[in-house]
């Protein structure tokens, strides 16, 4: 009887050792949605200088400089400039000026200088150069004094 119980126990032990643990796996799913976003960081304002014939006041002229803005986006946005509406001119300047804002970009996207809206579909960072040119026609000339203009750079 003792021998039988020992044999039964041994068989039971071997049977239980032979049982492998059942492993299971389960996927954990992560979702993320990024809406179009845009960051504009103005690095420097621009400087306009007058042309020798005094009919152009522009950041393109010698000694002038573009304003610079850092653009960072996910893509799916549009970049544009608004017509210039806010200007300050010296009192000696009584003639009209045509203001033309433009911009270009270099970096993740390459945008040739333009005044029109540009769609940006891919993500990345760019350095945007913003230019402003004021011109006078006919016999009109820019006058002595301080000029100031505001260019609106829009990302939407």
């Amino acid at each position: 009887m003792t021998l039988f119980r020992a044999a039964f126990g041994a068989v039971l032990l071997v049977a239980s050792i032979d049982q492998t643990a059942l492993a299971t796996t389960q996927n954990v799913i992560f979702n993320g949605t990024i809406a179009p976003t845009c960051t504009l960081v103005v690095a420097t304002n621009g400087t306009m200088t007058v042309s020798p014939d005094l009919q152009s006041l522009s950041s393109h002229n010698s000694g002038g400089s573009a304003g610079t803005v850092t653009l960072t986006t996910t893509g799916g946005v549009s970049l544009s400039v608004d017509p210039v509406t806010t200007t300050t001119v010296p009192s000696a300047d009584s003639t009209s000026t045509t203001w033309t804002p433009t911009y270009s970009a270099a970096g993740a996207h390459s945008i040739v200088e333009t005044g029109s809206a540009t769609s940006i579909s891919t993500p990345g960072a760019d350095l945007v150069s913003v230019h402003l040119a004021g011109t006078k026609g006919g016999s009109n000339r820019f006058a002595n004094g301080n000029y100031q203009a505001t260019v609106t750079l829009r990302c939407e």
């Binding site: 845009c38 103005v42 304003g67 829009r154 939407e156």
Partner: peptide, 24 residues
């Protein structure tokens, strides 16, 4: 509508840049 955030980070200079971020 467009809701726009506007700022002129460096005011009182010759050529100012207004940064405008608009959401639709």
């Amino acid at each position: 509508v467009r809701i726009c955030t506007e700022s002129i980070p460096f005011p009182n200079q010759q050529t100012q840049i207004r940064a405008q971020i608009c959401g639709k």
